[in-house]
Design a protein around this nucleic acid. Structure first.
Lengths: 199, 199
DNA sequence: GATGTCAATTGACACTGTGTCAAGTGAATG
DNA sequence: CATTCACTTGACACAGTGTCAATTGACATC
């Protein structure tokens, strides 16, 4: 307990930086969030940010971890794994991940924007997407076990398709540019997955 | 004829810059192509690039136009519009656009990367995507006319779905990260469109 | 109460890339 | 011969990232 408080106290500034980063990335729809903006929001000097994070990429990566912690992704996705029947599980996964996207969208956008330039950001984002792919793969495996996978579709290809369907750019296109509500997005994604994967 | 030669001669350097930009964006998989790289490849000084293009965004936009001209997009897409039956037309459009993506991929990537920062690049890319959407909409309309549109699907939603399916990020995910061949990509996209839209 | 530690501050600076400007060159045009 | 045009060169402003050295103020320890 003492240890917990200590580390919490010690990381107070660090957490304030992470929170500031998150909030700025969420609010400013663009990714033109500078280090100085973050510092100002966290009420410290620009240089002090570098006492806690090596560079911009490092900070963004840490921010995604921070959000995961607070939003408790693991918990949510675990629930989707409890569904027994293959199709139920597929739908539960779509619901869990699909509803998580809007919560990380701000950071995701910044990370994607940094991708061509920053190797760290690139790796961080790819790692996260690989994790999503694992989830897709597991859902497809469950489908296959129940003999519900569409005829002529290999698990690999089915996983690829589901992964594509649930990508952040697709969510962005449909909800931000096409004006779909989050509810409509989830509904249609479920319907599409059923049509494309379940036979 | 004289006029043609004159303008061609006059624009020789301009075309060399466009060609250099294109080639660099294609070759360097990243988008870290600097103005000086382009200038060097075009065999002129960095500053001279600004005699032909206002800024980086302007140059990138002009490069997409240049590629369109050389690759003759209009011609290709027009062919897809000649198909009479709704489903034929849908498939022809997927084939035409789907096979065009790899040819503009390098520039597309650079333009997308610039999006959060540069307003010009943003607008340029959005314009191009709007044009694709128009193509999708026309294909869906043709489908509807033939009473082939899946029951319960509005033309708007159907257009959105087709647009999403044929997006560049999806192409990137499937062919670059999942290792699909271009041929497999086209085949599966057609199959998916049929499942999702045709009833 | 002196000492040391530690987080943070301040001001300065190097570096990169974009975009601008002024002066100059060299070849073609009239 | 003078002008024009595309281009060159060198210099510079500006923005953003990342680094460094010297300093401050709080807190802990002996």
């Amino acid at each position: 307990m003492l240890l917990y408080i200590m580390s919490s106290e010690k990381n107070e500034t660090r957490n304030r930086i992470l929170k500031a980063t998150w909030e700025l990335l969420e609010s400013k729809d663009g990714a033109d969030v500078r280090m100085i903006d973050i510092a100002r929001k966290a009420d410290i000097s620009r240089q002090a940010v570098y006492l806690h994070f090596e560079n911009r990429g490092d900070l963004l990566v840490a921010t995604t971890r921070y959000i995961d912690d607070i939003k408790n992704v693991e918990e949510r996705l675990r629930k989707s794994r409890q569904a027994k029947a293959g199709t139920e599980r597929l739908l539960a996964y779509i619901e869990a991940w699909g509803n998580y996207i809007p919560e990380i969208y701000g950071v995701a956008k910044a990370l994607i924007a940094l991708r061509p330039v920053d190797g760290d950001a690139s790796r961080a984002w790819d790692d996260r997407m690989d994790a999503v792919r694992d989830g897709c793969e597991a859902a497809i495996k469950a489908l296959q076990k129940d003999h519900k996978l569409l005829d002529g579709l290999s698990p690999k290809v089915a996983t690829d398709i589901l992964w594509m369907l649930l990508s952040v750019p697709n969510w962005e296109l449909l909800t931000q540019r096409c004006g779909w509500s989050q509810k409509a997005y989830i509904k249609h994604m479920k319907a599409q997955a059923m049509r494309l994967l379940v036979g």
